[in-house]
Write a protein that binds this DNA or RNA. Structure first.
Length: 451
RNA sequence: GCGCCCAUCGUCUAUCGGUCAGGACAUCAGGUUUUCAUCCUGGUAAGCGGGGUUCGACUCCCCGUGGGCGCGCCA
């Protein structure tokens, strides 16, 4: 018999009780991807069980915990639509409660005052770890056990009178009625202490689930230097929240089988802690981007337009862009936009001057006789209407007139008109660009051509 | 150093003792397309090593090896 039976745990089955989980970030000015992933799992778990998802701001570090930093957390959650069910609890406001708990432990001889000498000035309050083994059944890692001799007493109130993380955390969880704690792997070792605290405070311990870390290619914790690491960065780079949510949910969890792309409703109904892996997962930006492009491609055009307006706002060319033209370009480029921030293919539609890709120019316009070929094309296009079909016919005529196979003229035209060798269909592009711009650019491009 | 945890294609994963070890990203080769991308078809690619248990092990156990986490008056 292990001692774990002596510790009161909340009932095992989530169905017979109302689930209350929490996301408890310390506001630092940014929300790390690993943290938000913990929030996602908590949220999915709560929604799956019809429970409550709560928010607790661990703002005990007064230096860093500015209102702006708190807002960053709120923004991240709102952006991903991880809604919480009760007003946020601010840990800094719970101090009396924390200290009262410490006093109670002191009274019960479960904690003691001590002057540790070191940097401390005066006495701090130390929690007395029970002299026996502690074990608990982690929902993802299984039975975890720690021997008594590996568990040391620890400080719960500093000599300056401020409560330490462990105390605050447990006291708040009790006050908030938390039933399941779903958090990062790095907290596993703390759990033994926390369980002892729950017991000492005569509260049933919640069920624990420790999520594997998100790591980089070197197996180290994923950080800013490995690419985007904060929620805000993903947003800036133009990832769609549904795609990021989907991708992050798949990091360490899988519904089984081949399911990958899922709506949030599907994830909610499929989610379960026992399908969470216990090995670390490596972040793969390429897969995220691929998933994102799928989401972008399938969203309603109006939604795409709305977001592209937002993402292009900082570009000068977009500020004065004709709304109708903007919409037509969006229609042309939606399926080739992996992330909202990728606007290279947009720019030339809205500018008078275009920049030519040197390599593309050399390869196409640099061909002998190209100046005459373009002049012929320009003549044919001048006579054409600017519908897609009309343009295609005109280009075919121009190709024939220059003794070129059908299609051989397309790339030179593309480079002449857009400056680039890649892009949407050339007929569609010219149609959207319109007669005036197309013809002007063709004329201009002649100067870049070989004789 | 001590304690704990982890280990399937390059990456994310499926598999709950019996599978030609499946899917996705990436990659390669074809095809479609007016370019690129998309899309379609196909290919390369995995059970860390060694012992057990079992008729049978990726799956269970043990020992290695490798990696991670923890060991604060940080959170």
């Amino acid at each position: 018999m292990t001692t774990s039976v002596m510790i009161a745990f909340l009932p095992f089955g989530a169905t017979t009780m109302s689930v209350r989980v929490r996301f408890a970030p310390s506001p630092t000015g940014h929300v790390h991807i690993g943290n938000i992933r913990a929030a996602i799992f908590n949220w999915l778990f709560a929604r799956h069980h019809g429970g409550r998802f709560l928010l607790r701001i661990e703002d005990t570090d007064r230096e860093r915990s500015t209102p702006e930093a708190v807002q960053t957390v709120i923004d991240a959650l709102e952006w991903l639509r991880l809604d919480w069910d009760e007003p946020p609890v601010y840990q800094s406001a719970q101090r009396d409660r924390h200290l009262a708990a410490a006093e109670e432990l002191l009274r019960k001889q479960l904690a003691y005052r001590e002057d540790k000498g070191q940097e401390g000035r005066g006495e701090c309050i130390v929690f007395r770890m029970p002299k026996r083994d502690i074990s608990f059944n982690d929902a993802v890692k299984g039975l975890l056990r720690k021997n008594a001799e590996d568990l040391k007493d620890f400080v719960i109130v500093r000599s300056d009178g401020t409560p330490v993380f462990h105390l605050a955390n447990v006291v708040d969880d009790i006050a908030m009625g938390i039933t399941h704690i779903i958090r990062g792997d790095d907290h596993v070792e703390n759990t033994f202490r926390h369980i002892a605290l729950f017991e000492a405070l005569e509260a049933p311990a919640p069920r624990y689930a420790h999520l594997p870390m998100i790591v980089n290619a070197q197996g180290k914790p994923y950080s800013k230097r490995d690419g985007a690491a904060y929620v805000g960065e993903f947003r800036e780079k133009g990832y769609w929240p549904e795609a990021l949510l989907n991708y992050l949910a798949l990091l360490g969890w899988s519904p089984g089988g081949d399911r990958e792309k899922m709506s949030r409703e599907e994830m909610i109904s499929l989610f379960s802690l026992d399908r969470v892996k216990s090995s670390p997962a490596q972040m793969d930006l390429r897969k995220l981007t691929h998933l994102n492009s799928l989401y972008v491609a399938e969203m309603p055009l109006e939604t795409f337009i709305r977001h592209m307006r937002e993402y292009t706002r900082r570009h000068e060319w977009a500020q004065k862009a004709d709304p109708t033209l903007f919409e037509r370009v969006a229609g042309l480029l939606q399926t080739r936009t992996p992330v909202f921030s990728q606007t290279e293919a947009w720019e030339h539609f809205f500018r008078d001057d275009i920049t030519y890709d040197e390599k593309a120019v050399r390869k196409t316009l640099g061909q002998p006789g190209m100046r005459r070929v373009l002049e012929t094309a320009r003549a044919c296009l001048t006579e054409s209407d600017f519908s897609v079909a009309g343009l295609e016919a005109a280009v075919r005529r121009a190709a024939a007139a220059s003794n070129l196979e059908p299609g051989r003229l397309n790339q030179p035209l593309r480079v002449a008109v857009t400056g680039s060798a890649t892009g949407a269909g050339i007929f569609e592009t010219m149609a959207v660009l319109g007669r005036e711009k197309t013809l002007t650019r063709l004329q201009k491009a002649a100067t870049l051509c070989a004789e």
